[in-house]
Amino acid sequence: MFRLIKYEMRKNITSVVILFAVIMGLEGYFLISALTDSRSHTAISSSLLVIATMVAYFCVCIFGIATYSKELKSKTGYMTFMTPISSFSIIGSKLISTLIEGVFFAILLVVLACTDMALFEAVFPETKLFSSFINMLLESMGVDASGFWLGMLATVIELLVTFFAIVSMAYLAITLSSTAFQNKKYKGVISAVIFIVIVIIVSKVADVLPNIYSNPTSVIEAIVSMVPALIYFTLITVASIFVSGTLLEKKVSL
């Protein structure tokens, strides 16, 4: 499977490099703006960096989904499916390579955010008041530094779990359109419709999950209240991978 991951990464390298270049371009814009004391440009560039963070999340998600879709719908899929490797390993390698790309961008953006915030405060000292206000607010809520980072970690885990649930549900929709519905016209539309239907059903069920703390008053309570959703979305991911892999093993048609 590690060999497959290597080739998955190679296939996506152009898109990853473009996304990286865009983020670094925005970072360059921010640095020049901050170091030249240009408030308006600093505001624009920092806003663009925040938007880029969200865009990067969706881009990595789309890269992961697009590579799987292409595999099942274009002739290059022969390269992968001719190899003596199970369908589960093929799906697993795609998910892991998507995870690696996601972690790479997450680390890059966190490092940039920390250095940029420090630079921002150094260049514009008055913004220290804002961060002091945030710290006071957190302290009044009983959140100390360790609690804050624990909360951040829990949020990152929640983002990762939901990210994988979305990607694996998209894999399931694409697999269904290429296997069980392979004989139908407009397979692309079918996979989009299936994906939307799956997401709606999964969201509806998520809404009725048990609420451990309806109004969490501490970080620990907030983290504990995430647990049912984390377990649920992990199960959704596992089930989607299992169904996709089984369908590919039994009904693949390239």
């Binding site: 060999r3 290597k6 080739y7 022969y78 390269m79 190899t83």
Partner: peptide
């Protein structure tokens, strides 16, 4: 071993890359 009628190689591949791919999997 199967040789399809279509060009099935990944777009980035040279003959060398394709050889490495086959060496890795077969």
């Amino acid at each position: 071993a199967y040789m399809p009628t279509e060009n099935f190689f990944y777009s980035y591949m040279t003959c060398k890359d394709a050889g490495h791919y086959y060496r890795d999997f077969f």
